[in-house]
Design a protein around this nucleic acid. Structure first.
Lengths: 208, 208
DNA sequence: TTACCTTTGTTGCAATTGCAACAAAGAAAA
DNA sequence: TTTTCTTTGTTGCAATTGCAACAAAGGTAA
C-alpha cells in the first residue's frame, strides 16, 4: 500500500536462491492457490497481480484482497471457519515463489541468514496484524460518518499533513468500510457541508 | 476461549527458566502495560485477569480485549494508527512474564529449544490472525441478521453439532458484532420466529 | 435475607441506512 | 475516434437500526 518494505525484498532475495522454494508462472485467469487445506504454505507474488476471491453459498463473487509486487499470502493469513470457496486468481501473467513454513525454518536452521529471515517473516505477520487492526477499528464504528472519520484519521495519523490521497476508488472504499456506496457519498457530502472535510477528487483533507 | 493450547504452555515453561524474562506481579487496578511506544515487547499473563482498555478523545472507556490464563499480548498485537490511549489493567492480582522479541530470538539462537520456541511464537501470531479474520468476517456483513448468522456459523463450523454455548453474554455479543443490543435481541427473536434458530438461554442451535 | 447491580427482554419512535434507479463523467477497449 | 464499461454523483422511498426507556429476572455482595 505504501512504499515497498525492505524485509519483503530481503525475503525474495534469499528465497530465490534456495532449493526448497519453487518458482512458478501463471497466466491471466489461472488459479495460483486454493485455501481448502491448511498446509501452512506461503506464496510470494514477485511479479504480476492477483486477487483473493471468495464465492459464497449463493455464488456471489467477492474480491477480498488484492496482491501486487512482493505481497506474501497463504493459508495462515486467511484461515477462517467458513464454508465458502477461496482461491487466488492471477489477474495478469504472474510469477510466484512457493514455500512452506517447515522448510523455511528447518533449512535455515544453521545458516547465518537465519535470524534475518525469521525477522522478515515476523515483520510480515506484524504488518498483516496492523492492517487487520485498522480494518476492525473502522468496522466497529456504528455510523457511516464515524466509519469515514475513523478511516480518514488512520490515513493521516502516520504523517504530519492532514490530507491524503485515497488509495482506491470510492466504490472500493465503500466495500472496505462495508457500507452502501450511495449512502457513503451522501455522508461525504454532509461532512463537506458541515465544514469537517474538504474533497478534491481523490484527495481528502481534514479541517479539524 | 477454547481449551488451552499446548504451545502457550510450552512457552510459559521455557520462558520461566531464562534470565532475560522478567516476572512481575500486579495488584488489582494496576497498569500492566501501556501501548504508547513500540518496543516489540510481549507480556504473558500466567495468572490472574486483565483487560485491554481504550480511552477515546471523548473520555469514553472501552474494553477491547480480555486476557486470562496464558494469554500473550503486547504492542505488536495492537499496533494501530490512533490518538487513543491504550493500556492493560489488572482486574485481579496478576502475575506476568515480560520479554521482548530481540532477546527471545537472540538468546535461543544456539539452543536446541529454538525451533520449538519459534514455532510456538508463530502459532500465537497465527491464532491472533484467525481470531481477527473471524471478527472481520462478521463485521463486514451488512445487516444484523447476517452478522448473527455469520457468527453462529463460525461457532458451529469447527464441530459436527449445529449448536453451541455463547462464550459471553448477549450484551457482550452485541459489542463484539458492533450493533445495538436491543436491535440484536429483536433480530434474534425474528430468527426464532422464522424457524431459523433455536435459543435455550446461552445455547444456540442452528435449524438449517 | 435484603439491597444493589448487571443482564435480559421488550417496545415506540426517530434517524440512519440500504436499495433502486438513472444521468453524467471518466477510463479502457475496439 | 467511437463504443463500451466503470465510477461518480444524486435522489426518493422503504426498511433497518439505534436510541431511550422501563420492567423483570438473575447474580453478587452486604
Amino acid at each position: 500500500m505504501d512504499d515497498k518494505l525492505n524485509h519483503l525484498y530481503y525475503l525474495e532475495d534469499v528465497l530465490s536462491n534456495t532449493n526448497f522454494v519453487k518458482k512458478k508462472t501463471f497466466k491471466k485467469g489461472e488459479i495460483i492457490s486454493t485455501y481448502i487445506d491448511k498446509r501452512h504454505q506461503y506464496v510470494m507474488l514477485i511479479e504480476g497481480e492477483a486477487d483473493l476471491i471468495r464465492y459464497d453459498v449463493n455464488g456471489n463473487k467477492t474480491i477480498i484482497e488484492k496482491y501486487i509486487d512482493k505481497d506474501l499470502f497463504g493459508d495462515v493469513f486467511y484461515t477462517i471457519y467458513t464454508n465458502n470457496e477461496l482461491f487466488v486468481e492471477a489477474k495478469k501473467k504472474s510469477e510466484v515463489l512457493i514455500f512452506n513454513y517447515e522448510d523455511l525454518v528447518s533449512n535455515f536452521n544453521k545458516d547465518s541468514k537465519y535470524k534475518k529471515v525469521i525477522d522478515a517473516l515476523f515483520s510480515v505477520y506484524t504488518d498483516k496484524i496492523l492492517v487487520m487492526n485498522n480494518r476492525i477499528e473502522v468496522l466497529t464504528k456504528r455510523t457511516i460518518r464515524e466509519k469515514l472519520l475513523s478511516y480518514f484519521q488512520i490515513m493521516t495519523s502516520r504523517k504530519l499533513k492532514k490530507s491524503f490521497y485515497l488509495p482506491f476508488t470510492y466504490t472500493d472504499l465503500a466495500d472496505y468500510l462495508s457500507i452502501d456506496r450511495s449512502a457513503m457519498m451522501r455522508e461525504i457530502k454532509n461532512l463537506i457541508d458541515d465544514g469537517i472535510i474538504k474533497k478534491e477528487a481523490e484527495r481528502i483533507t481534514l479541517l479539524f
